[in-house]
């Protein structure tokens, strides 16, 4: 059982401002049913441009509901300029803290507020300005960078606790590490043990063996635990042909997994020149 503060319990059991404001001036929606939490925020301003009424509807765990409730309490009476400055830490502090693994709830609150403000101002995020890094949970590079900077996150696990990114199929792990490395100007960690000393040429037989080993050890376990499977079909020079099986074969994310995970791992452990291609069967 989570160790929730009394304040979290109070805001969960007696949530403030549940519902939908009629004829709202702004609506902010974040999260999704698939991801396991989502928040819809509606608000109305008074003649002085202060938040007169603000309500939430939340799908999620106790801390998601408590954070939404806290958010409405904090934001009420503020101008949008003031509300904009509310950080996810403010939400967590208001509730006397959240378990580390639940910090993503505070981030979701902050994002719903940002979305509502953007909605009021008529700004839309233009496609192309951001890239969706974590497909499992729909998290963009901008978001990961911002949350990591605001909360001084340096590890992949922290990013997952705060944004959920990386908590699913793990295909986005290399990309998240890259973002962290760029942000904190640290070099990405070297793979623990390089099986092949760089530059050493592998015989074809060695290469095939190494590819098979890497598949079994590094690649298949996470894919299989997600209900998928992958079969090695052929190796032609540096091109590796694989077929996706099980859940992977009808998963729209499979191309992403193939390039960002399967290929990345094979490049890490076998040779940086490898290319992975999918054979449809």
């Amino acid at each position: 059982m989570w160790d929730y503060s009394d304040k979290v319990k109070d805001h969960f059991l007696n949530p403030r401002n549940v519902g939908e404001v009629e004829n709202p001036d702004a609506v902010g929606e974040v999260g999704s049913l698939a991801c396991g939490d989502a928040l819809r925020l509606t608000l109305k301003l008074d003649e002085n441009q202060r938040i007169k009424d603000i309500k939430f509807q939340t799908f999620g765990c106790a801390s998601a509901i408590a954070t939404s409730s806290a958010l409405t309490e904090i934001a009420k009476g503020m101008t949008l300029e003031e509300a904009e400055k509310i950080s996810n830490q403010d939400l967590a502090e208001f509730l006397d803290g959240l378990p580390e693994e639940k910090m993503h709830c505070s981030v979701m609150g902050k994002e719903a507020l940002d979305a509502a403000i953007a909605n009021y101002r008529g700004v839309k995020m233009v496609k192309g300005e951001f890239e969706i890094v974590c497909k499992c949970f729909g998290v963009t590079d901008l978001e990961i960078e911002r949350v990591a900077r605001d909360n001084s996150l340096t590890t992949l696990e922290q990013v997952t606790d705060f944004t959920k990114a990386g908590g699913g199929c793990q295909a986005c792990h290399p990309k998240i590490k890259e973002i962290l490395a760029g942000l904190w100007k640290i070099l990405p960690e070297e793979p623990a043990e390089k099986t092949v000393p760089a530059g050493k040429k592998l015989s074809n037989l060695q290469k095939i063996r190494l590819i098979e080993e890497t598949l079994e050890r590094e690649i298949l376990p996470p894919i299989r635990s997600d209900g998928g499977d992958l079969e090695l079909i052929d190796i032609d020079g540096n091109t590796i042909y694989v077929a996706l099986r099980g859940n992977c074969s009808f998963c729209p994310q499979s191309q992403f997994t193939l390039k960002n995970f399967v290929e990345a791992k094979l490049r890490e452990f076998v040779s940086s020149e490898l290319v992975v291609e999918e054979v449809k069967s």
């Binding site: 929606e29 999704s32 049913l33 989502a38 499992c136 998928g228 859940n247 998963c251 729209p252």
Partner: peptide
């Protein structure tokens, strides 16, 4: 209807994953 934003762009993934 559930807005696509709310159900997530890649609902399929969760259905099958």
């Amino acid at each position: 209807p559930m807005s696509s934003f709310f159900t997530g762009g890649d609902a399929e993934h969760h259905l099958h994953g």
